[in-house]
């Protein structure tokens, strides 16, 4: 294998890993605070995807505005869903929250089916998303470089937010021991709302790159990233933000390596191989790559 192939593989894997890392971060932000696996997360992505579609096809807004509004839309749907579907059940059973997240997911999916169409709609993204650059002998899609750059910026931004700001410290405290954080004066509603806003914001960013890969949006488009997010989070460790990022990259490396080395006749079973590896890993290390800390006590 020559150097060029390795380089191309590395950059493309890094790009896929970046996207997966953003997906799992969005899941873990909410999970860390509420211990809730939010099944509606995929639909935040879908919702932002449809905003992209509508704004791109039916308006002449400049691209940066289309992107900004779509991402903002993700943050807003995250915020609203918490207000309407999760807050009323908080402090009851975790199962109630769980069921409620399924409900949000189904309602949003079906809204898209009924109000737009069950079929996929082509998104109109800027040309740069479909171009590629040539470095010597290798070709890299610009989309992949953008994914990496945006991910780096977001990770640094989130790192600063979580490490340097009062809100970030309060959120880290709350995700480790929610009841104790509340007794230190941290308002539960504020921290939870912020977690959902960040989750929705990340979903909005993911929507751009996810729909750029397929070129279209459809009502079920959130399910793919949701599954990716689950697996990445489980690999990385459910209670650690860093772990979820690592999990995203690990998943991408694994998926791309399998695609590269599996013989053609087995390629359609790639995911089966993937899951066997993941399950084996979890048998050996059930806590994931990074263990993280959490308390058994739930949001009360």
């Amino acid at each position: 294998m020559n150097f060029n192939i390795i380089l191309e593989f590395s950059i493309n894997t890094l790009a896929l890993g970046s996207l997966y890392a953003l997906i799992s971060l969005g899941l873990v932000f909410v999970f860390g605070i509420m211990q809730l696996v939010n099944f509606a997360y995929g639909e935040y992505i879908m919702f932002s995807g449809y905003l992209l579609y509508f704004l791109g096809v039916f308006t002449n807004l400049p691209w940066f505005l289309v992107f900004a509004i779509s991402i903002l839309g993700g943050a807003i749907i995250g915020f609203l869903s918490e207000l309407v579907a999760f807050r009323p059940f908080r402090g009851r059973s975790l199962e109630a929250l769980f069921v409620s997240s399924f409900a949000v997911s189904l309602i949003l999916q079906n809204t898209a089916v009924l109000s737009v169409s069950p079929r996929s709609k082509a998104v109109d993204l800027p040309a740069i998303f479909n171009e590629a650059v040539q470095f010597g002998e290798i070709t890299i899609p610009i989309r992949n470089l953008l994914t990496i750059a945006v991910t780096i910026i977001l990770l640094v931004g989130l790192l600063v937010l979580m490490k340097k700001t009062p809100l970030g410290i309060a959120m880290r405290a709350a995700s480790e021991n929610f009841p104790a954080a509340r007794l230190m004066g941290v308002p539960a509603n504020l921290v939870i709302s912020i977690a959902f806003i960040i989750s929705g914001f990340l979903a909005g960013v993911v929507a751009i790159f996810w729909s750029a890969r397929s070129g279209a949006v459809e009502p079920m488009m959130g399910q793919g990233p949701l599954l990716v997010g689950f697996i990445a989070v489980v690999i990385g460790g459910m209670y650690s933000l860093t772990g979820s990022v690592l999990g995203g990259f690990a998943y991408a490396v694994l998926a791309n390596l399998l695609s590269m080395f599996l013989p053609n006749e087995l390629l359609s079973f790639r995911d089966a191989f993937m899951f066997v590896i993941v399950i084996t890993f979890l048998v050996i290390r059930p806590q994931g790559l990074i263990k993280g800390t959490y308390t058994e006590e739930r949001v009360g």
């Binding site: 009062p166 410290i169 309060a170 880290r172 405290a173 480790e176 021991n177 104790a180 230190m184 004066g185």
Partner: peptide
Amino acid sequence: FKDLTVYENVEVGYVGI
């Protein structure tokens, strides 16, 4: 908050309010 530093733990006391 066991995964926060000693310093950050004390800070939570004030940023928390």
